[in-house]
């Protein structure tokens, strides 16, 4: 479904990604962990070309993103993204946030988009917030709206960049529950997270990133239970 080949990314002289190779299968939940500054966000953002790779290839369904930069708006529809800071549109109601892209990009009739948006809101557990503005929501509610907004484009894969890091502890659970539900429904997901409990429980595969490379990867049992690399062990001993 996604194939990454020798992906490099530099900001000026700073090389942040130093050759990433991995493949993500349909329906797989991949959790990316690693220390701050190791390049997790940059890797994720390359997957929908929010950052342009300096070198290397990314294929989605066999189509090279780098070669089809002109088609990027169409390719991005296949890839939903959820941000740490939610990034809801503050001048639009919750429903308008969710309907914007389906109506303007996919040209779905407004009524149909509205019905779908309401359905998605129910799915993420919000029932009476349709016409509310984002500023009136709690952090957990905002993030669930953001997930619904991304799902409204029917993406084939969802990218999550530390979706619970900006939340008060009591709200982390509600967002993780929605993500877990998505995973159970078979959504392909790439999740950058510091929630090791979630990674262990929901992840099919864990990638440990260190200084711009995937230093170690494996099932949660392998990676958490029996890490091979010294640096992986050091990282895990700090966060577990």
């Amino acid at each position: 479904m996604i194939k990454v080949v020798d992906l490099h990314k530099s900001f000026g002289n700073l090389e942040v990604l130093k050759g990433i190779n991995t493949e993500i299968q349909k329906g797989e939940v991949v959790c990316v962990i690693g220390a701050s500054g190791s390049g997790k966000s940059t890797f994720l953002r390359c997957l929908n070309l929010l950052e342009e790779p300096t070198k290397g290839e990314i294929y989605i369904d066999g189509i090279s993103l780098v070669e089809h930069k002109k088609d990027i708006n169409r390719l991005r529809q296949k890839v939903g993204m959820v941000f740490q800071q939610f990034n809801l549109f503050p001048h639009m109601t919750v429903l308008e946030n969710i309907m914007l892209a389906p109506v303007k990009v996919k040209r779905i009739p407004e009524e149909e988009a509205r019905r779908k948006a309401i359905e998605l809101l129910r799915k993420v557990g919000l029932s009476d917030k349709d016409d509310v503005y984002p500023s009136q929501l709690s952090g957990g509610q905002k993030q669930r709206v953001a997930i619904a907004r991304a799902l409204a484009m029917d993406p084939e894969v969802m990218l999550f960049d530390e979706p619970t890091s900006a939340l008060d502890p009591e709200m982390v659970g509600e967002v993780l529950a929605v993500m877990k539900q998505l995973a159970l429904e078979g959504m392909t997901m790439v999740v950058v997270t510091h929630e090791m409990g979630f990674a262990r429980e929901v992840g099919d595969r864990i990638l440990f990133m260190d200084e711009g490379v995937i230093l170690e990867e494996g099932t949660p049992e392998e990676l958490f239970g029996n890490p091979k690399k010294e640096r992986t062990r050091a990282f895990l001993s700090k966060v577990l």
Binding site: N73, R76, V79, M81, L88, A150
Partner: peptide, 14 residues
């Protein structure tokens, strides 16, 4: 906020 443009682009808007 920069995140607004990113969120919009990530949804497929030009």
């Amino acid at each position: 906020d920069k995140g607004q443009m990113e969120a919009a682009r990530s949804l497929g808007l030009s």
